[in-house]
Design a protein around this nucleic acid. Structure first.
Length: 837
RNA sequence: GCGGGAGUGGUGGAACGGUAGACACGCCAGACUUAGGAUCUGGUGCCUCACGGCGUAGGGGUUCGACUCCCCUCUCCCGCACCA
């Protein structure tokens, strides 16, 4: 009966001869094999496999790959390699987000050409990726700093320009004093420059914008397509960022001014509670209103404005900041009751939100109340919420209640009053319902060298003239002779031969726009370019885009939750509207991986907790590092490298590899004659692993593979033995599944098992459904919800039979201790719960 | 302040409302060893000699049954932060 026992001698030999797996030595042998086989090429003509587009966010080439890259690409690779094994033609390309400030920094500091610095880093990263066994399709590669790429940024700019979606306007903009350039709203994080952490200030400048606000509603609505496929967190962040609010515009007559001024409010029901009026200090309206004010007021305003503009965003944001302002000695007339409201300027009203002016309702808005208390202004309650008087408590009431002191609105509740007053205002031509967004237009011009030149020529007689398509690309001038030091204006302006051109329209002398584009423009459409990276006549091949897009699976860090993802969604919609794309969302599914940290905090040189990827790779090998990244936990969680054990991963890989060397049945041995229990475990593991991978529970997938390895070990050592065909079946399954995370080891195993490379294209093991059926399951028997016994029962057992068996259990009877049975809950075949009286 | 998420062994983490702690790391013991930081085997939530009891941040609730659903509290993380 049973499996053949190994003799003691065999056992001794085997134990004594445990082979050592040299994970590092093995690596070299496969790289050239893979180069030749190109298992991940996706552009072979006539490829009949169904398509799938897996995309990792492309890197910025600032030095070599680091631990963060290693995690992201390990995760993306599991997904890409899985779908290849499932028989899909997977497009998994890579490129470089190659424009940007670090290259200029290097140029300034070390006198190297940004081009040379950038391409040198790219070469290094590319070599590291190859070594890290990334499953990229090396035929699909792009560099955004290549004129062959950025000409299409210019093309995109011109298409937006034609539609009025790219425009120039003067405005108060975010200014980074360190980088000496403007920043988009999205690139200011907590009042600091997203790049260099310098506190941001404001500056009035004329800049180029993309009109993303025109797409605010669609960016919001289309998120229903992404529900469940993108992390909820990202969707929430985008919703908040867009910040749609509904309310009403209300016109106020200003004494001594012909035109009334419109304000926006979400609380038109509190109109009768307005006791003052505030205009943003840095708005045009403020400048205009103060011009008619007495000289003393003008002076105070001027010094106040200077003070406001000198304040950094950091200070502006501090919440405990007292309210400040200047009374202009002018008045606005409340349209509902004719009251004269004193007009103030203050920095707590923002020039570029709503209309840059508000009505002050101190009783029902905390900010207004703070201001009123600072300036001794009246506080009038118009919504009785039952809470204490704000004038005394200093706490504004914002809840629901009954309108008072509000003329015809008295007695209505908040919501009714909002509707009523909006109607009344509309009927009298004094207001209308209004929607406002927190989202601002995307400021895309930058006063720096290493970016895409804006394809506009400024002509003294024709004004702004777009560069014709056939004159693209507008190439960057050579860097020689240019001073790249940040000085607040673009270095390109000093490139005389470049900047002075003939006007494309009148041929007269004109100047190129000297600014370059935000690098987020580059990345807002790169996923389209991968379909046809070599095309020189079009930005992307329409047919190829129809084939591949949208991206089925996007993988990247949550740092881009707003910036890159919002811009990409916007550009996709614009290109859709222009007829270039037939879809409206670029990324069907999104996975945000966490960060790799060390000892509880982000790695940094200054903290002294930096872990170098290259060190980890040479200590443990590529596979062990990749496996550790994947096995550490759910992909969206941070990985504390102090908590993971690449050495443990390496040991596991050695165990798997050794098994492959012990398989003693020939290639093609019929598994159906093999050990049934092991076969069942194999097929179940294959099934469970697939389910886990598809649900992004890669750590669980690894655990399932480990279980199978452990079970196979037992069968080899103390069960059916290494010659059983079921062992081969199991080990082959392990090799294929492991190829998702540990490509070198899997390839070695595959070779040891007698197969030709590459295991990457071996195909996912076919499931035998019959082997997934269990002939007995463990049934838990509870008494009052507590487990008292376990029964082995057939899966098809009927409820009555199970109930009978459960009640017959001695352990159940003991636990009942003579009490009667009130009910028995039976959930065949897994559980019975006996409820005593 | 507003919004979102999360609290499970010494650690990372598993668990369709149905066996809490899969799989690892670490640790302990053993085997093989001149040796072992290699390899293999076994053990490992807490209390208890045991029977058994207690355990998923804390407190309530729904349910035959709750890590899972609901309410309250505490703690931590993330995002936004004068957006009228």
């Amino acid at each position: 009966m049973g499996p053949t026992r190994m003799t003691d001698i065999e056992q001794e030999t085997r134990a004594g001869a445990r082979e050592e797996y040299d994970a590092i030595a093995v690596q070299e042998r496969w790289l050239s094999v893979w180069d030749e086989l190109a298992p991940f090429r996706s552009s072979d003509p006539g490829d009949e496999r169904p398509k799938r587009y897996v995309l990792d966010m492309f890197p910025y080439p600032s030095g070599d790959l680091h631990m963060g890259h290693a995690e992201a690409y390990a995760l993306g690779d599991v997904i890409a390699r899985y779908w290849v094994q499932r028989g899909y033609n997977v497009m998994h390309p890579i490129g470089w987000d190659a424009f940007g400030l670090p290259a200029e920094g290097a140029a300034i500091k070390r006198g190297v050409d940004p081009r040379d610095w950038t391409y040198a880093n790219i070469d290094q990263q590319r070599a590291s990726m190859r070594h890290y066994a990334c499953s990229f399709d090396w035929d699909r590669v792009l560099y955004t700093c290549d004129p062959g790429y950025y000409r299409w940024n210019q093309w995109l700019f011109l298409r937006l320009y034609e539609r009025g979606l790219a425009y120039r306007k003067p405005s108060q903009v975010n200014w980074c004093p360190y980088d000496q350039t403007v920043l988009a709203n999205e690139q200011v994080v907590g009042g600091r420059c997203e790049r260099c952490d310098t506190p941001v200030t404001k500056k009035k400048l004329t800049q180029w914008y993309f009109k993303i606000t025109e797409y605010a509603d669609r960016l919001l609505e289309d998120m229903t397509q992404l529900e469940g496929a993108w992390p909820e967190k990202v969707l929430t962040m985008q919703r908040n960022w867009i910040g749609r609010s509904t309310g009403a515009d209300v016109s106020f007559v200003i004494e001594g001014r012909d035109e009334p001024v419109t304000i926006y409010t979400t609380r038109p029901d509190t109109l009768f509670g307005a006791t003052f009026f505030v205009v943003a200090a840095d708005s045009d309206l403020a400048a205009e209103l103060v011009a008619e004010a007495p000289g003393e007021v003008r002076e105070r305003f001027a010094s106040y404005l200077a003070q406001v503009q000198g304040t950094s965003e950091i200070d502006r944001l501090s919440s405990e900041r007292p309210k400040t302002g200047v009374f202009l000695q002018r008045y606005a007339i409340n349209p509902v009751n004719g009251e004269r409201l004193p007009i103030y300027v203050s920095d707590y009203v923002l020039a570029d939100y709503g209309h840059g002016a508000i009505m002050g309702v101190p009783a029902h808005d905390q900010r207004d109340l703070d201001f009123a208390r600072a300036f001794g202004l009246a506080v009038r309650v118009v919504v009785d919420t039952g809470e204490p008087d704000p004038a005394e408590t200093g706490v504004a009431t914002t809840g629901d209640g009954v309108l008072v002191n509000s003329g015809e609105l008295d007695g209505l509740r908040k919501a009714e009053a909002i509707e009523r007053i909006t109607q009344l205002l509309a009927a009298r031509g004094l207001g209308r319902p209004a929607v406002t967004y927190r989202l601002r237009d995307w400021l895309i011009s930058r006063q720096r060298y290493w970016g895409t030149p804006i394809p506009i020529v400024h002509c003294p007689s024709c004004g702004e003239v777009p560069v014709p398509d056939d004159a693209l690309p507008v190439r960057l001038p050579r860097v020689e002779g240019l001073d790249l030091t940040p000085k607040g204006s673009s270095p390109l302006g000093a490139a005389q031969e470049w900047v002075n051109v003939a006007c494309p329209r009148c041929a007269g002398p004109a100047r190129r726009d000297p600014d370059t584009m935000d690098t987020f423009v580059d990345s807002s459409w790169y996923y389209l370019r991968f379909c046809s990276p070599g095309r020189e006549d079009v930005p992307f091949d329409a047919e190829a885009v129809r084939t591949w897009l949208p991206v089925d699976q996007y993988v990247g860090g949550v740092t881009h939750a707003i910036l890159h993802l919002l811009y990409s969604r916007f550009v996709t919609k614009v290109l859709h509207d222009l007829g270039y794309l037939d879809f409206t969302e670029p990324f069907t599914r999104l996975l945000n991986q966490g960060m790799v940290i060390m000892n509880g905090s982000a790695m940094s040189k200054s903290r002294g907790n930096l872990v170098r990827l290259s060190d980890e790779l040479s200590a443990h090998g590529v596979d062990a590092v990749r496996l550790s990244m994947v096995f550490a936990g759910p992909p969206e969680d941070d990985i504390d490298w102090a908590d993971v054990s690449p050495a443990g991963s390496a040991r596991f890989l050695g165990r798997a590899w050794r098994l492959a060397g012990e398989v003693a049945s020939p290639v093609g041995a019929d598994p159906s004659t093999g050990d049934l229990e092991l076969r069942k475990l194999t097929h179940r593991a294959v099934q469970d692993t697939a389910v886990a991978v598809e649900a992004f529970r890669f750590n669980v997938a690894v655990a399932k593979i480990m279980e199978l390895v452990n079970a196979t070990r037992k069968v080899v050592d103390t069960g059916a033995g290494p010659a059983d065909p079921a062992v081969r079946e199991a080990v082959e399954a392990v090799a294929v599944m492991l190829s998702l995370m540990a490509p070198y080891t899997a390839e070695e195993m595959w070779a040891r098992l007698g197969h030709a490379p590459s295991v990457a294209r071996a195909g996912w093991p076919a499931l035998d459904e019959a082997l997934l059926v269990r002939e007995s399951v463990t049934c838990v028997v509870q008494v009052a919800g507590k487990v008292r016994d376990r029964l082995e029962v057939p899966p098809g057992i009927d409820e009555d039979e199970l109930r009978t068996q459960a009640l017959a259990s001695a352990a159940v009877q003991r636990a009942l201790d003579g009490r009667g049975v009130r009910t028995v809950i039976v959930r065949a075949p897994r559980l019975v719960n006996v409820v005593p009286v």
